[in-house]
Amino acid sequence: MKAAHVRPDYHLYEDLFQEGLILYAEMLEQLPSEKTRTEIDKLSFRKIIWQTLNRLHKEQLNCERNTDIEEAYDLGEIKDLDNLVILKGEIKEFSEIERLILLEHLIGNSTLRQLSAEYEIPRRSLTRTKHNLLEKLREILNR
């Protein structure tokens, strides 16, 4: 798990660990017996690492999608015209990246990955800015 950079306090640590053990057992059964134990261990280790990284990537994408939907839903119910006027005034004070995320990601349904590739901004930076933007919008709307 260390090689995949998964810490023991990660919420899926035990699941990933168990899947790794199961995969190792499957590899011991599947690989031909003429291979040495060292070769089998190396191949198994690589396969476990790749499967773990793949699962972590899928989990990250799933969390990102769910977060987008949940947080955008909270903000998407702007029923009051006053809130729209307030937002219109506040948008002028947003940074260029915040406006980009608001208009193209939250409203325009572009993914952060697409924005990252198109504008050459790290996806992690976009995710952090999006989180801060959503907090800022909540604060503005709750005034």
Rank of each mutant, 00 (worst) to 15 (best):
S33C: 02
I78R: 15
L61G: 02
A117S: 14
E29Q: 04
I69A: 05
L115Y: 08
F45R: 05
Q51E: 08
K136M: 06
R65A: 13
T36W: 02
N83F: 03
D68R: 15
L31K: 01
L61A: 02
I78E: 07
K130Q: 13
I91Q: 13
E118M: 12
I49A: 00
V6G: 11
R55K: 14
A25G: 10
D41N: 11
Y119M: 10
D9P: 03
Y119F: 15
G20F: 02
T111E: 01
T38S: 11
E135I: 14
L102E: 04
L112I: 15
S116L: 05
R143G: 10
A3S: 06
I48L: 01
T52R: 00
R124F: 14
H105K: 14
K130P: 11
S44K: 02
Y10P: 02
T127D: 14
E98V: 06
V6C: 13
D68K: 10
L87Y: 04
T38Y: 07
H57V: 04
L12M: 14
F45S: 07
Q51V: 02
Y73V: 12
I69G: 01
H5I: 06
Y13H: 09
R55F: 03
I97K: 08
R113I: 06
K2H: 10
L133G: 03
K42N: 07
E70I: 11
N66F: 09
E90I: 06
N142F: 05
I107L: 15
N66Q: 15
D9W: 10
N109A: 05
E26S: 01
Y24S: 04
E93C: 01
E96C: 09
A25P: 04
